[in-house]
């Protein structure tokens, strides 16, 4: 199903609302799958939405043989635990974000199209900068991008995807074989 931008925007915003409220948005039902063990950082609905974002940011994630969306969110939360202040940051940004969009945009149902997320993020960024004179939306999505990439590329699968074998794999000054 091809969604219009407004519909797409609304669906993602409803999902973001679910991140804070914990109330499942209607479209999330379409993604109903067994969830990995719940963690304190995100509600089940939040985890599903994060997985959608993750798939847009690193498409390989869901194709990873040992992974899938559940794998990502669990890892995401694990990394949040080792990064001081990260969980607090998410809570703060989600709360601010949803408060602002709730006041401006009606929530509409429908699953998001990951392929359009990049353009959508940019549009949000412009809108928020223009209309609210803040850059917090930009900061929020930059933070999300950073954490998704950190979660993926700090794994053996992420290393393999760029043919990397670790920092001490080739113990010579130029990375070549030892003579």
């Amino acid at each position: 199903m091809k969604l219009g931008r407004r519909r797409l925007l609304g669906s993602l915003l409803s999902g973001l609302a679910a991140l804070v409220s914990g109330a499942p948005a209607r479209w999330l039902a379409a993604y109903a799958e067994p969830l990995v063990t719940p963690r304190p950082l995100f509600s089940p609905g939040s985890r599903r939405l994060l997985a959608v974002f993750a798939d847009a940011i690193v498409p390989e994630w869901n194709g990873h043989p040992s992974g899938g969306a559940g794998d990502f969110t669990a890892r995401f939360e694990a990394l949040a635990e080792v990064t001081a202040g990260r969980a607090d940051n998410y809570g703060r940004f989600f709360e601010r974000f949803v408060k602002e969009v709730d006041a401006r945009v009606p929530l509409l149902p429908g699953p998001p199209d990951p392929a359009e997320l990049g353009a959508l993020f940019e549009r949000w960024h412009r809108e928020f900068r223009t209309e609210t004179k803040t850059t917090f939306a930009a900061q929020f999505f930059e933070m999300l991008r950073r954490d998704v990439m950190r979660a993926y590329y700090a794994t053996p699968a992420g290393w393999r995807s760029v043919d990397y074998h670790g920092p001490a794999h080739r113990a010579t000054p130029d990375g070549g074989p030892r003579a």
Binding site: A56, I57, V58, P59, E60, P114, A115, L117, G118, R145, R146, M149, R150, Y153, A154, G158, W159, S161, V162, Y164, P167
Partner: peptide, 19 residues
Amino acid sequence: EGPVGTALEGVPGLGRAHR
């Protein structure tokens, strides 16, 4: 440093184009 740093700071954007 390694893949994480390059992905974050060496390449803009996201998705398949980023990859």
